[in-house]
Structures are given as C-alpha cells and as structure tokens.
Nucleic acid binder design. Structure first.
Lengths: 229, 229
DNA sequence: CGCGAGCTTGACGTTGTTCAACTAGAGTGG
DNA sequence: CCACTCTAGTTGAACAACGTCAAGCTCGCG
C-alpha cells in the first residue's frame, strides 16, 4: 500500500484517537500493520492461536465464534465495521478464546500487538479510551448471555433480530448475511426453531421475509416479545 | 483507620502494583477510600447505580448478580478475596450492569473512581495491569456463559462445583456459603434440578454432602461430566 | 416450642431438540 | 441443456430434557 492509500484507511481509528495520540504514532502503527481481505466464511483469527495481533475491522461483518469439542458452534457476538477487535479484549495473555470469522467479505488491518502496546503505554489517555471501547463490547456480550440464560427461544431470537437491526445493519430492513444455522448458534437454539419462529412471526405480520431480506414490520411487538422472554 | 492499619490493608493490591506505582499513589488512594464491612446477603453495589467507586475486596466472597424485570436472578460469576471488582469492568461509563452482593461477610474498600482514574493515567504500566486483571475476569464470565449455552444441566452444575472448588474456595472440600437456589441461578437451571443432580452424584460417590459441606470425591469423573456436558 | 426458610421428592406438562423426509436453488460436468 | 449433487431451508412427528407445582421435611432461630 502506498502512503496515500494508508491515509484513507484507519479513518475511524484516526477520528476516535485524534485527541489522544500523535499522528506519528498512527504512522508507526500503520508501518507494522498488514492489510488483508477475507471472503465470507474465512477465519480471520483462529481460536487457540496466539494473540499476536489486534484487528482493525475496516469494512465487513465478523462473528466471534466459539467451537467446542463436539464441533458445536456458539456465536458470542457479531460486529460490523468500523471496530477494533479482540486482542484488545484479553490483552497479550493466553491463547485466543474464540475465532473471528468473516460473515461478509471483510477488509481488515492486522496491527502488531507489541507495537500497539508500546503506543498505549506512551499515551495513557488513549489506553483509557481503548479500555472503554473494550468494556463496551464486553457489556454487549454479557447482555447477550443474560438474554440467553433468562429467556426462552422466542425472546432470544427476538433479541438477535433486534440486535442485528440496531447494531450490525443499522436498519430495520436488511439483507441477512447469516444462515438460519448461524442465527441459531447466536440465539442458542436449534436451526428448526429459528425457522419455525421466523415463519410464525411472518404470519403474524411482525416481520417480513423475502429470500435473504428481513424487514421488521412491528418493531414494538418484537420489543415486547423480547421483554416478556 | 490509623496509619498502621491502613498499611496492613491493600496488601495484595500493594504486591501486584508495587513494581508499577509509587507508594505515594497508594496513599492517595487510601485517603480517598472508605473501608466497610458487609454481612452475608447485603448489597455492596447496586445494579443501575452509578459506578462512582471501584471495589477492592479484602476478605469474603461476592456474587455478581443480575436481576431482570420479573425478579429472576442470574449469577454472572462469584469471586473471593483478594480482588479488584467492577467499576474496572466498565470504567466510568453508564450505570452498573449488575449488583455486587456479599455471599459471605466481606471487608471491602471503596475506592473513588476518579482518583483511581487519575492514578492509572499517571501510571500507564499499572493501567495495563488493571486492564489484564479485568480481562481475566471477563474471560471467566465468558467461559461460564459458554458452558451455559452449550451444555445441559449436569455439565453446567459440574462446572459450577468445579469452579467453586478451584477459584473460590481453593479446595476440593469446602463449606458451601451458597444456597441451592443460588447454585441454580449460577448454573442457569431450577433449584430442584440442582438438588436432584447433587443427590444423584452423592449416590454415585462422585461427591459427598454433609449439611453445607461439599467434598469432591471423584474429581476426574466430575471433570468428565463437565466435558461431555 | 413453634415458625419460617431452605431443602427434598415425585408427578405432570411444556419447551425445545432430534430425526427423517421433502423442497428449492446454485454449481458442475457430461 | 439436462441430469446430478450439494447446501440451505422447511415441515411434522416422536421423544427427551427441564421447569413448575404441590406437598412434606429439617433445621436453626426467636
């Protein structure tokens, strides 16, 4: 990548960090970083691997995927660009707890963790900011899990749909890049149950399904289903 | 508290921070802190309140309790002293996501969040350490939730018992300070199911129950139950 | 001594998973 | 251009897991 290109990148990162960090530092980061693209389904960072890099997600959507011994998956959360991912979560300790997998084609910058660490140490205000960004994601995951633990399937699936609309696609009408199986892995139930519930909601005119397109028609009702669990 | 006393306190805190922080800073913390004791069942920090304080748990055991609209509780995790709690999790943003409740009598030091923040900013190495401690707790919670999502009740209850033994009581034989209901809230199942499962394991000589005392007899078998879920 | 909270047990109904069969669409090779 | 296959989606029936309810028990404390 040439100098011009690299200045276009990192734009969100530059914005949030501008007040805390010198542009020289950002250039240091860029020099030790690699830009890669991942296709839908490709693994960006593998569960069990070493957290040598922090990921800056420039475009695309990524799932946090945990796979257990019997090859069952659990999606911890799903995020869309721009965002700083992982590594930051468990800074420089132990192996990765889960994988990052592209749900849609992604452009990603892999930042060397050691370089980032040095810059954070040198810019405590910026470190505090990263701390807060990380905490925010933690909070999202915890809320997800609370939903999973307390509600039954309809409430959980409603939560997933509402989350996707508000946090991932940023619209009440979106083209779903997840399969039914993935929604199930996110909501913690079987694929069949996702299908049945979505069909039921379509009949009840709460949502509309057209191929991969999902539209929330009766937002309040969905909220209500989420609330009563 | 007089000067001598306050030097006895914070000892774990002093140890982990000694290499990163000047003793003057610790004294600053102490000056802006209050030491309190909480009896079993008392709320140390309430869900929905403002995170004005970070908690240093000096002695005792604390549960992270989430209560939903219908008064159902979920225990996110349980920790024993010495430990730095919360606030740190979601540094200075939003209201507390959950309550900290004493499960056994606790001695606690409430540290003013603003003072701590200033000290962290002034000691980036120390901030990094706090970051890691926090991440470690996050990881524990996530593992808990993964267990909850993927396993059925026996595996989950096994996880809870194993967790209590290794992380809270630090022994394979311990006097349980939790009620059956609380174990259920931690394992995400009904009280009755906890009882049935524990009785079953007692019959199978996997654990022994004598009043509030729990002893893990067949550790490997419990591990196995946890593994197969 | 009696009361209440926590504990225990069994019966029952609901929820949700599993399995099996079928459909639709996309990609492949003859 | 047509089978062929593979994957994702869909449906229904059988079954297992789990929560709920109701009743009785035990123990510690007032």
């Amino acid at each position: 990548m040439d100098a011009n290109e690299s200045k276009q990148e990192f734009s969100w990162f530059r914005n949030i960090s501008a007040q805390f960090i010198q542009s020289g530092d950002i250039e240091k980061l860029e020099k030790s970083s690699v830009k890669l693209t991942f296709k839908k389904g490709e693994i960006i960072l593998k569960q069990g691997g070493l957290p040598t890099h922090v990921i800056y997600l420039e475009t695309g959507i990524v799932k946090f995927n945990y796979e257990n011994e019997s090859n069952k998956n659990l999606i911890l959360t799903i995020v869309s660009a721009p965002k700083i991912l992982g590594g930051a979560n468990f800074f420089y300790k132990d192996n990765n707890l889960f994988s990052f997998i592209a749900v849609e084609d992604c452009e990603v910058i892999l930042i060397d963790a050691k370089v980032l660490e040095a810059i954070l140490i040198a810019n405590p205000q910026f470190m505090m900011l990263m701390f807060q960004v990380t905490s925010e994601m933690f909070k999202t995951s915890v809320l997800n899990f609370i939903s999973l633990a307390h509600k039954q399937k309809e409430g959980r699936i409603a939560d997933v749909i509402l989350y996707l609309a508000s946090e991932v696609y940023n619209e009440n009408s979106f083209v779903l890049s997840l399969t039914r199986k993935e929604i199930a892995e996110f909501a913690g139930c079987s694929t069949e149950n996702v299908i049945i519930t979505l069909s039921k909601w379509q009949n009840e005119k709460i949502i509309s399904l057209t191929g991969k397109k999902v539209e929330i028609i009766d937002y309040d009702r969905l909220k209500y289903i989420s609330k009563i669990g």
